[in-house]
Amino acid sequence: MRIGVPKEIKDQEYRVGLTPASVRELVSRGHVVMVQAGAGAALGLSDHSYTVAGAKLVPDAQAVYGDAEMIVKVKEPQLSERALLKPGQILYAYLHLAADREQTADLVKSGSVCIAYETVTGPDGRLPLLSPMSEVAGRMSVQVAAAYLEKPRGSMGLLLGGVPGVAPAHVVVIGAGVVGTSAVQIAVGMGARVTVLDRNVDRLRHLGLVFGNRVVTVYSSVDSLERAVLSADAVIGAVLVPGAEAPRLVTRAMVARMKGGSVVVDVAIDQGGCFETSRPTSHTHPTYVVDGVLHYCVTNMPAAVSRTSTFALNNATLAYAMAIADKGWSRALAEDRGLRAGLNICRGNVTYAAVASAHGYAHVPVEQVLA
């Protein structure tokens, strides 16, 4: 198979779909890998390292999209990239379509075969291709909150962990999944006072066993969520409904009553965000203020630590990429139920129910497409 790796063009997105080591694996199996010149340069992966691994360097995105049967990316294709997609071409990347009507329409129109990292499932029902970036974003969220609680950043001027005689900041984490657990781990390590809310009592029990009395676990209800948010100095939104829009759990009215100078980090922003006041931001313009509350809603947080993120992502995505390349997309999906769950759009059909529901498309089951 001819596999293309374009340079990412989203704002300050430095990750790359395949590392040289991943290229070498694919080339060793008889595949041709075309890498756009400079695709990995920002994270220290030189063009030379790709050619040594067996890649064919091409000058621009047009050359990548024009000749590749499968495109391997990190973030969703931007408008100019979507215009380059061809009918039947495989797109393998993060897509987050439920919160993006325009992208969904363009991908349907393209006739391409779109496999979304974030909805591929493992044998245990978890999300193996989303987990590495969720771990990165969860850890980063507390670092970000700590930085933006500083006065020069426009907040109230709190040290997250406090000092002897002065209480630490109160960090509230909404959601006890991969993002939430990673956020709790860093918040506890930095000495914050931590509250985590979820409706999965087993997840709360696990966090209680791991962190003991360093974390307060709370069953999430409208009342408990409101009380926690209003007492927080920083709130981490870590809610996920796989493949669907995130529920808007924190209302505008709640935000209006939060402490002045408090910080919101909405990690769920890729799926629309879990605060009514959330809107997507970029690394160039990461924050805005609503009712005195600073909001950080960057849609590609892990790009800030692009080298770590790229290697972590490749560890998870490569095996599936090899399966698709070795077998072709239809056979690979037919043989792997988890990979089949990753198919969101196929040749003009919306095959993921939550995406179809979000944007008013007819849902065409994957099995029907494969048949």
Rank of each mutant, 00 (worst) to 15 (best):
V366S: 00
G54F: 09
L240F: 06
S309R: 09
L294R: 01
R199E: 08
R227E: 15
A341E: 13
A147Y: 12
L84M: 09
V27F: 12
S141D: 10
L249G: 03
R257G: 08
E8F: 12
D336P: 08
R331S: 15
V52N: 04
V265Q: 02
G111D: 09
T299M: 03
A312H: 14
R29P: 07
P6M: 05
D233T: 01
E276S: 05
S306F: 14
P59Y: 13
G17F: 06
G157Y: 03
E367W: 14
A353K: 11
I236L: 03
V5E: 02
G175S: 01
G30A: 03
L91Y: 03
D270L: 11
V16Q: 02
V267K: 00
Y219G: 13
L160M: 05
H96F: 09
E8N: 14
A42V: 09
V369E: 00
A238P: 04
V263A: 00
P77N: 06
A371S: 11
R2D: 10
S357M: 09
R307L: 12
P20S: 15
V173E: 03
G237N: 05
A39L: 03
Q185S: 15
R257N: 07
L207K: 00
A232N: 04
A304T: 11
M1F: 09
A356D: 05
A183F: 09
G154L: 01
Y361S: 06
A146I: 11
V350G: 00
V173G: 06
T104E: 01
V144F: 14
V289N: 12
A147W: 04
